[in-house]
Design a protein around this nucleic acid. Structure first.
Length: 103
DNA sequence: AAACTGACTAATA
DNA sequence: CTATTAGCCAGTT
């Protein structure tokens, strides 16, 4: 467990098509590790540029953008998502039924 | 070693 | 809708 696992997560995130989103738990399950949602969050939290991981396509199960350490992260993620056509509803939440990736 | 901490979730109340 | 509980596990104190 460790670095290798993160590579697996990053790989899974790469599989999320543009214009769609996936939840942390979904990514974990896709990797064959159900229940490891927190590890997905951790893996993304330690990402450092340069990287080519579309981290913004990963949101929580409520359809919200999870708060991260640095303020401004949420706005960035929201902007990236909207740039590829994923638009939040009136309450700032993303409709999973519409945008969630079906692997 | 033990306690604490998280970009999490599902189930209950 | 909010709150609480319990499960999760690699890092950090």
């Amino acid at each position: 467990m460790g670095q290798q696992q993160y590579t697996l997560f990053y790989n899974a995130v790469h599989a999320i098509p543009r214009g769609q989103v996936a939840t942390y738990g979904q990514v974990a399950q896709y990797c064959g590790l159900p229940g490891h949602a927190r590890m997905v969050g951790y893996a993304l939290s330690i990402l450092q540029e340069p990287h080519d991981v579309p981290w913004h396509r990963v949101i929580n199960a409520r359809g919200e953008i999870s708060p991260g350490g640095r303020p401004g992260r949420i706005a960035t993620q929201k902007a990236l998502l909207m740039a590829e056509g994923v638009v939040p509803d009136g309450n700032g939440r993303i409709n999973l039924r519409q945008y969630q990736w079906r692997g």
